[in-house]
């Protein structure tokens, strides 16, 4: 890569790249700016970019409406809970497939992948009816179950691709060193797999947090996570833009930060290891 690049060219490319990046990011930036405006400023034409009356009252308002906290809690509990359960099921399975593969391992992996391809809308009716009959509609448990199962294939796949990169030799070395299976898992595999486990966890929280088909269809109020809560802003037209922006900013900020941390792992996670 030791190629000489002229300064002028670099400057042009840099400017172009920053411009493109800025345009792509702009809607989010605009939303964040709007969240600090008064409702009047938010609605004004021509729009004010920076020189408006900065206020945090929208955040206060959003915060005061006690249901915001409730929905944020719902998001945290459903995204976090579904992820933890999925990890608990997926880690042993991925370990088995990576380190004790059988002739059918590949088929099982591909079959798991294919369950993810089933369009949710295809099973909307039965899931809705089962949930209705078992009283799971608009419950956190119900959402956790559906989010957990929906993301399980991705979790297993991601963990599998990470585990597979751990050299088998090292686990065998531990076995030769007299470690039992439990000790091998605890002292050798887990510390080595930790980065992979962490990024799988992160990506899965993001996916669950942003899931907006099941959450919209299976929750209405008590268990509604932020996706559903934000959707409720679509009905009263206009005039709540600043508050909508503030609520939206709060809803995406944590995940945006988590996402930025996990972006390097995103590609392989979402392409099932087909692109690294």
């Amino acid at each position: 890569m030791a190629r000489k690049v002229t300064g002028a060219k670099t400057a042009i490319w840099t400017a172009a790249a920053w411009l493109v990046g800025f345009i792509i990011f702009f809607p989010i930036l605009w939303m964040m700016l709007t969240s600090f405006k008064t409702e009047l400023d938010a609605f004004s034409t021509p729009p004010s970019f920076l020189f408006f009356h900065w206020t945090t009252e929208n955040y206060a308002t959003v915060q005061e409406r006690s249901d915001y906290t409730l929905h944020a809690m719902n998001s945290i509990i459903t995204a976090g809970g579904s992820t933890l359960i999925a990890m608990a099921i997926a880690i042993p399975a991925a370990w088995a497939m990576a380190f004790a593969p059988t002739k059918r391992t590949k088929d099982i992996l591909l079959w798991m992948l294919s369950t993810k391809m089933m369009p949710a809308v295809g099973v909307l009716v039965p899931i809705y009816l089962i949930y209705r009959d078992f009283g799971l509609l608009d419950t956190r448990i119900g959402l956790i179950v559906v989010l957990c199962l929906g993301n399980l294939p991705i979790v297993i796949w991601m963990l599998f691709t990470y585990f597979k990169e751990i050299p088998k030799d090292i686990l065998e070395a531990a076995r030769m060193d007299g470690a039992t299976i439990t000790k091998e898992l605890l002292f050798v595999l887990t510390p080595m797999a930790l980065p992979g486990i962490a990024s799988t966890l992160l990506l899965n929280v993001i996916l669950a947090w942003n899931e907006a088909f099941w959450t919209l269809n299976l929750s209405t109020s008590a268990a509604a996570p932020l996706t559903t809560f934000i959707a409720s802003y679509s009905s009263p037209e206009g005039l709540f833009w600043a508050k909508l922006s503030a609520a939206s900013t709060l809803a995406i900020a944590p995940i945006l930060i988590l996402g930025w941390f996990s972006q390097k792992q995103l590609v392989r996670g979402l392409t099932f290891g087909a692109v690294k």
Partner: peptide, 15 residues
């Protein structure tokens, strides 16, 4: 683990 042998791997397989 119970055979009382030790092994040096091609990749060294260090932890």
């Amino acid at each position: 683990a119970k055979r009382g042998l030790s092994m040096v791997f091609q990749s060294y397989a260090l932890y």
